[in-house]
Design a protein around this nucleic acid. Structure first.
Length: 500
RNA sequence: GUGACCGUAGCUCAAUAGGCAGAGCUCUGGAUUGUGGCUCCAGCGGUUGUGGGUUCGAGCCCCAUCGGUCACCCCA
């Protein structure tokens, strides 16, 4: 026997029961979003890797399913947002704003699979381009919460944050773009756990090691002064250079190291601020005054906080209980393109925290992926598989199964059996034909075991008269009738059918 | 990526201390030639994930490798 080929790690097969439920959830939510004006779109599963280079932090960049084919760098999409931006640039630039899009489909991330975590999973989400930032933030939050209510999921936690607070702070520091990116991507780890905080500290130590010999130098502000100072210092310890070029190069490297040391101080300063910010996370409204005081102390613009305060009251009016809302200004997200509001929705499952949804505002992404002008944008995505497992069972529709099995008595009755099946289907009865060619007895056994309620037995007699023998396997009743009568009968027993 | 546990028939799992590789379910045929669920009988199905080592002898012990599950980490 040939060795069996195994299913790929982190991938799964969708079997009928779950497939039907997943399909149903997507249909329900898509209909809901269509009602809100979100047009359904889809994008290719494959994109050029560059598309996500801009949008993804280094952490996630490692997780792309990327490969090279015919001299092109390609990847399976790790999310939809950047693709939808590309779709906008390709087809919608002349359209009247705002524009609303919704999507549902597979995304791929090469990461360690685990509880409720797959390398391929389904995301359902929306993107809203244009419009007033505050108004669209409000709409997006409302939709995300409404979708949960729509599926009768009531126990969840809505975590709200705003990148504006942290970026306002970081922009005042003189950090190079690498350091800024590092801080933003590490922000999330800080906010998650003590452990994360330790990891961050370690990484910073590794990237920006302390260098006490340079601490003094960094006190000297002016670059020209620094250069002269270093030069004289080198002369003083009798270091000789072959020529001026080498001397200049050495001095520059020295200054670069000094700059690095300065970065270190500033990053540590930023880290301290993030810790303070994280420390005052909690439920509204108490936390607002604490955060306001913190911003005041650091002389930061309170505008993001004011916006969040208004959003919280809107969310509460949408029916989200206050105790399920958490304010977390140090909330950072894996993807690095967010610029304003960020939010996550979490729930408990089997005592474990699962993230159902993530989203926020990303006003610069459009130009990052090549737009000639900036475009305000906001959106979110749900993980459909995680979402599905939290929907109460009674909310989900019953599984659709076969209602009737046509059993040909002999092989020569098969053509008539196929005809009967076709007629029954066209009348709305879900019908299968027993193609095993094993006689009536085995056919009935098959129907019983498959829990198919009606057996339609067709042999020579039935064929001659153009009728079928209908046997109800629940009541044991049997009667000869034409197929049309059968259809009526099926409709009457449909409710009971589900209990089988 | 790190740690723990696991890998035996299509599926779920046994196999005492290192001593003949087994059971249930599924599938096929029959008891029953046009009447079901139950029952009974028979059959199909294996290089014990793979490669090496120790041993008279390995599913079991050792090493390596691949795969799986869980936790950490990270995300939806």
């Amino acid at each position: 026997m040939k060795k069996r080929v195994e299913r790929l790690r982190g991938m799964y097969d969708l079997l009928p029961d779950v497939y039907q439920h997943q399909r149903w959830v997507i249909d329900q939510l898509s209909t809901f979003l269509t009602q809100a004006g979100y047009a359904q779109v889809d994008t290719p599963v494959l994109e050029r890797s560059d598309l996500f280079e801009a949008s993804f932090g280094q952490e996630l960049w490692q997780k792309l399913y990327a490969f090279r084919l015919h001299n092109r760098e390609l990847c399976l999409r790790p999310e939809y947002t950047a693709s939808i931006c590309r779709l906008y640039l390709d087809h919608y630039q002349q359209q009247l704003l705002p524009l609303r899009f919704q999507y549902a489909g597979s995304i791929f991330r090469y990461e360690a699979p685990g509880r409720a975590r797959y390398r391929q999973h389904t995301q359902l989400g929306v993107e809203l381009f244009g419009g007033d930032p505050f108004a669209t933030d409000a709409e997006i939050l409302q939709l995300a919460c409404n979708m949960l209510h729509e599926m009768r999921i009531s126990h969840y936690r809505l975590e709200l944050g705003h990148i504006g607070v942290v970026s306002g702070f970081i922009n005042r520091l003189h950090l190079d773009s690498h350091a800024v990116h590092l801080l933003l991507s590490l922000m999330e780890q800080i906010s998650r756990s003590e452990e994360g905080e330790r990891v961050v500290q370690e990484r910073l130590e590794a990237l920006y090691p302390p260098d006490p010999s340079l601490e003094k130098l960094t006190q000297v502000a002016d670059q020209g002064v620094q250069a002269r100072y270093v030069t004289s210092l080198l002369d003083g310890i009798s270091v000789s250079f072959g020529d001026d070029d080498i001397r200049r190069e050495t001095v520059e490297r020295f200054l670069w190291k000094m700059g690095r040391s300065e970065q270190r101080r500033q990053i540590l300063h930023a880290l301290e601020f993030l810790r303070a910010l994280h420390a005052v996370s909690g439920p509204p409204p108490e936390v607002f005054s604490e955060v306001r005081e913190l911003l005041d102390r650091y002389g930061l613009d309170p505008a993001p906080l004011t916006e969040l305060q208004q959003l919280v009251s809107i969310v509460e009016q949408c029916g989200v209980p206050r105790e399920q809302i958490v304010l977390n200004l140090s909330l950072g997200r894996g993807v690095s393109y967010y610029t304003g509001l960020v939010f996550e929705i979490h729930a408990q499952e089997d005592g474990f925290d699962v993230q159902l949804c993530g989203g926020g505002r990303y006003d610069h992404l459009m130009s990052t992926v090549g737009s000639p002008r900036e475009l305000n944008a906001c959106g979110f995505a749900f993980g459909v598989e995680r979402f599905l497992s939290l929907i109460p069972r009674e909310t989900l529709p019953p599984i659709v199964t076969t209602q009737a099995l046509v059993i040909p008595v002999h092989t020569q009755d098969l053509p008539y059996a196929l005809q009967v099946a076709h007629t029954a289907r066209s009348l709305g009865v879900r019908t299968e034909v027993d193609v095993a060619d094993h006689g009536v007895s085995a056919g009935l056994r098959l129907a019983a075991r498959r829990q198919i309620r009606l057996a339609l037995i067709v042999g020579e007699d039935e064929r001659r008269q153009g009728v079928v023998t209908v046997r109800d396997l629940v009541t044991g009743e049997e009667q000869v009738s034409n197929v049309e009568a059968l259809a009526l009968r099926t409709q009457n027993t449909q409710d009971k059918d589900q209990c089988l």
